[in-house]
């Protein structure tokens, strides 16, 4: 009975820790999984080479063991990364407050699918191991698109926040200089134009990302749109900064 009670306590403590993990914690966790993967990968390459060189029973068993291990470590690293990405999205955007009925970008589904691969790492012959590995690798193409969209959503949100902040500074400057000189007015208009252009370019990328969330897979270069938006924002910000320094 005591053991059961202790088990419940440990479980609840564990659940509390998991629920409280931040993006920083998950990033560090992913880094650790990356280190484990690299170690396992070197062992796999070595074991595979030794089997190809000697073709003995011992090297065969070792090759199976090390390959199974690296398949598990590879999967664990990707899962850890996806969890970090999911938490970053939650912290940067408002998706953490979405109703539970909403899944975002299928991140949860993909994490659960990868976590459910219990047969990975259990192959007892080369063919079974190769099949398990190929099945996993096939999922990565779709995963790449999802990861790109998620990353761009984070970047776009950060850019939008910068745009909002700069707009705030621009408004404040206009209020402080209710009757600007002709030169100041020209510069202020230019700053406003560049800022608007930046917002519009970012919104175009947002529209593409919104389509992605409804299942439309685009080969659009999300990053290019955001980079163009960023360029206009940098110019706008620097102009405002120079203007603010003038007496």
């Amino acid at each position: 009975m005591k053991k059961l009670a202790l088990g419940i306590i440990v479980f609840l403590l564990g659940a509390t820790v998991v629920a409280a993990q931040s993006a920083g914690d998950l990033f560090n966790s992913a880094v650790n999984y990356g280190t484990s993967y690299r170690t396992a990968y070197l062992a796999y390459v070595q074991a595979k080479n030794q089997y190809q060189q000697y073709h003995t029973g011992v090297t065969r068993v070792e090759a199976i063991s090390k390959t199974n291990d690296v398949l598990v470590k590879r999967n664990q690293w990707v899962i850890a990364y996806l969890k970090f990405l999911r938490q970053t999205l939650a912290e940067v955007t408002n998706i953490a407050t979405y109703p539970q009925t909403v899944t975002y970008l299928d991140l949860e589904k993909n994490i659960a699918a990868l976590e459910g691969l219990t047969s990975l790492g259990g192959g007892d012959n080369f063919a079974a191991i190769n099949t398990a590995s190929q099945d996993w690798e096939k999922q990565m193409t779709q995963m790449d698109r999802m990861v790109l969209a998620a990353r761009m959503q984070v970047s776009s949100t950060r850019l939008a926040n910068f745009q909002d902040q700069l707009a705030g500074y621009l408004d404040a400057y206009r209020q402080e200089h209710a009757t600007p000189s002709a030169s100041q007015k020209t510069t202020l208009d230019l700053i406003g134009e560049k800022l608007n252009s930046s917002v519009q370019l970012r919104q175009q990328t947002d529209a593409l990302l919104a389509k992605y969330r409804t299942g439309f897979v685009s080969n659009a270069n999300y990053a290019q749109g955001l980079n163009d938006s960023h360029q206009a924002l940098v110019e706008s910000a620097k102009l405002l900064n120079e203007l603010s320094r003038q007496p």
């Binding site: 796999y44 090759a63 590879r74 690293w77 990707v78 790449d144 970047s155 940098v234």
Partner: peptide, 30 residues
């Protein structure tokens, strides 16, 4: 404002911290 300008300048569409894991996608045995 100067701090914001610096932050904007340092922003990258492809944030390296969010880069996905680089793993071998052709792990196999002969």
């Amino acid at each position: 404002l100067p701090s914001l300008v610096k932050q904007i300048d340092g922003w990258q569409a492809n944030d390296p911290r969010l880069a996905p894991p680089v793993v071998d996608r052709k792990i196999s045995l002969p």
